[in-house]
């Protein structure tokens, strides 16, 4: 039987409004413009999220063209005639080339998906560019608070599936579920692992794990939402089918060059202090506790 993951979390209404104080302020003032954050951008119109993009999530163009819903040439024509992917999608809607329901659904899927990454903990402050022309589009928009709450709920969902976030970003490699126990060699013969057949959607993800691709690469190849792919990746990690290849250790930036006499007289420079990201630290602690 297919392994049953833990129940889907329900949004904690009290926990909302903790992700980006800047975003909440922009929502309150009904701002229009683009919020650029470390892992993605949110496009606001009158304080509502109308579009989101992230390098970690396939865009609407990928979702629509990967399985032939829309010919690549048709998207390129719309994109060439429009300013940005949101306007291109609106052109497609107006042209009647795609059913409204399909386009709305795909648009919302892409918005929540990229929004999840755009609101991920970041090490740099976000920047907002005001846009003078507030415009109500024809595609559905989402209140900021709804995107924030859904993002928090999705984080919790992934955490419950498998608390180590390393597999979300690192290249993935297949692991033999039989060899997962890494403790001291057991005296008794290793107990046979439960062979659980994979759901077809998980199989498609696992088939692309090759020691090079990351979850984001697999999502793009499958034309599938990145968060959906992360759900499968964490479930596969929990079942011992894959693991992150190696933790990615960020290279510390080189210290600024100093004059030779300063270098002689001064103590070695302190490492650069960055504002610790509480959410990230908590996730790290949880992952370590779960080992």
């Amino acid at each position: 039987m297919v392994r049953t993951p833990p129940p889907l979390p329900v949004r904690d209404k009290a926990a909302a409004r903790a992700l980006s104080p800047m975003l909440n302020r922009l929502a309150e003032e009904r701002a229009t413009g683009v919020l650029v954050r470390e892992h993605g951008t949110l496009h606001l119109a009158q304080g509502r999220v109308v579009h989101a993009e992230s390098p970690l999530a396939p865009g609407l163009d990928v979702l629509l063209t990967a399985h032939g819903t829309l010919a690549t040439a048709a998207w390129q024509r719309a994109a060439a005639a429009a300013e940005g992917p949101l306007r291109a999608a609106e052109l497609l809607l107006e042209s009647g080339l795609l059913p409204a329901g399909a386009l709305e659904l795909c648009h919302l899927d892409a918005l929540y998906d990229a929004g999840y990454f755009a609101l991920a903990p970041s090490s740099t402050p976000g920047r907002f560019h005001y846009d003078g022309a507030p415009r109500t589009g024809t595609l559905p928009s989402v209140p900021v608070v709804a995107l924030e709450r859904e993002t928090l709920r999705r984080r919790l969902q992934l955490h419950r599936l498998w608390p180590d976030p390393a597999a979300d970003t690192a290249p993935l490699i297949r692991a033999d579920p039989l060899l997962r126990d890494t403790g001291p060699a057991p005296a008794a013969p290793a107990r046979p692992a439960r062979r659980t057949p994979l759901a077809p959607r998980q199989r498609a993800v696992l088939d692309r794990v090759d020691g090079t691709r990351t979850a984001a690469d697999i999502a793009r190849e499958l034309g599938r939402q990145a968060f959906h792919t992360l759900v499968d990746v964490r479930r596969l990690a929990a079942a011992g089918h894959l693991r992150p290849l190696a933790p990615v250790v960020p290279v510390p930036p080189a210290p600024p060059p100093t004059a030779p006499e300063q270098a002689r007289n001064l103590p070695p420079p302190l490492p650069p202090v960055t504002d610790p990201d509480i959410a990230l630290l908590k996730r790290l602690r949880d992952a370590l506790e779960a080992l």
């Binding site: 979390p9 059913p99 409204a100 329901g101 709305e104 659904l105 919302l108 859904e150 969902q157 939402q225």
Partner: peptide
């Protein structure tokens, strides 16, 4: 061509309909 809201409103016109939703079963999002 109906969008999501029109589709849900149409479902609500069925006899006895109390509520309707369009839900993603991977994330649990309505």
């Amino acid at each position: 061509m109906p969008g999501i809201d029109e589709c849900l409103l149409e479902a609500m016109r069925l006899p006895g309909a109390r509520g309707a939703a369009l839900v993603d079963w991977t994330s649990g999002l309505a």
